[in-house]
């Protein structure tokens, strides 16, 4: 039996893909299965990074044959591949790309799909087990994926302790035929602070009265850029005329629900909170240990934002530079 993982790259192999490999490799070990991987947009310089992670076979498609963005192009190929391999499980990172692709693939394979899973396990009798959050994570369901094949998408996790001593993957090339695409990519709009709408942003960095002046946003803007975040503000900052009202988060501003909200120099009154109470993880950076925001943030750093924020940006840049 085989497990097939779908890898994603955005410039480089994503963290999510690495964590899918790690989880699948572990499962493959337990279930004594072969681990196959497809990498739609491979970076040939980086192929060596896949060595030892537990992948047995790596499927590559001749460059330019299937545009990586196009689900329309990839779905028939992947369906056929999964069928030919008779894969027991198909796993992908729970990214926008991975989730949409798996949903379509699942329909073609008439298989079940569990999205956004937190963990993947394998029973002794060879059945995949996943833990899937329901109700926005308020409830967890442990699912036993009896039917073959099954599909899962996995949320990224730490890859510490991942397999390193596996084989060097055998590479299989494919040259699928492609019928003309009906759905075409007109443009790719990259994230940049200006372009991300607050209400759609997955990450928001927000500043308040602690910013201290209209010219002090640089530190926050740089952090935004590296995180692909949108810039938010408290009403105090808007009121003072330091930033446009469109950035205001709160009761009388925008209601946002990013996965991550970083509040810098914001005291966190209820009127501000009203706009961001649906945020996933809340990080607060504030000088005053008694600030209300520390009552409901997940991570709080007491200190000067002008010290901490540039430090964060710097370290993140360094990490990105290394190509994590």
């Amino acid at each position: 039996m085989k497990i097939l993982v779908l890898l994603e790259s955005r410039g480089e192999l994503t963290l999510g893909s690495l964590s899918v490999i790690a989880a699948a490799a572990q499962a493959a070990d337990r279930g004594h299965m072969e681990l196959h991987a497809v990498w739609p947009e491979p970076d040939h310089e980086q192929l060596h990074r896949l060595a030892g992670l537990g992948i047995n076979v790596l499927h590559l498609v001749r460059e330019d044959l299937l545009p990586p963005y196009s689900q329309e192009a990839w779905i028939p190929f992947l369906t056929e591949l999964a069928q030919n391999l008779d894969a027991r499980l198909i796993a992908a990172p729970a990214s926008a790309w991975g989730k949409a692709l798996c949903a379509a693939l699942a329909a073609r394979l008439d298989a079940e799909l569990a999205q956004d899973c937190l963990s993947l396990d394998w029973t002794l009798d060879g059945t995949p087990l996943v833990r899937k959050p329901l109700y926005a994570g308020k409830i967890l369901a442990d699912l036993r994926l009896d039917h073959s094949p099954a599909l899962v998408t996995l949320r990224p996790r730490s890859v510490k302790g991942a397999k390193r001593d596996g084989p060097i993957p055998r590479i299989v090339g494919h040259e699928p035929s492609l019928s003309p695409l009906r759905c075409v990519l007109k443009e790719l709009v990259p994230l940049s602070t200006g372009a991300v709408k607050l209400t759609e942003a997955r990450v928001i960095v927000a500043g308040g009265r602690g910013i201290g002046g209209p010219d002090n946003w640089t530190a926050l803007r740089e952090l935004c850029d590296i995180l692909g975040a949108a810039l938010g503000a408290s009403r105090a900052a808007v009121d003072a005329g330091w930033i446009h009202q469109g950035h205001q988060v709160g009761q009388t501003g925008k209601t946002v629900s990013p996965d991550l909200y970083i509040a810098c120099g914001i005291s966190g009154t209820i009127q501000h909170r009203a706009g961001m109470s649906n945020a996933g993880t809340v990080v607060a950076i504030n000088r005053d240990p008694g600030a209300e925001i520390f009552q409901y943030c997940d991570y709080g750093l007491v200190g000067d934002l002008f010290e901490i924020v540039p430090k964060l940006t710097l370290e993140l840049k360094a990490l990105r530079g290394q190509g994590s």
Binding site: Q251, G253, R273, A274, S277, Q295, Y296
Partner: peptide, 25 residues
């Protein structure tokens, strides 16, 4: 426009800020 947020919060959460009730605090 900002009233829509308030009305929805009152409808869904029973309080004008839309803060989930069950939150321990």
């Amino acid at each position: 426009a900002e009233l829509q947020t308030t009305f929805r919060a009152l409808e869904r959460h029973g309080n004008p800020w839309g803060i989930a009730r069950r939150e321990s605090d």
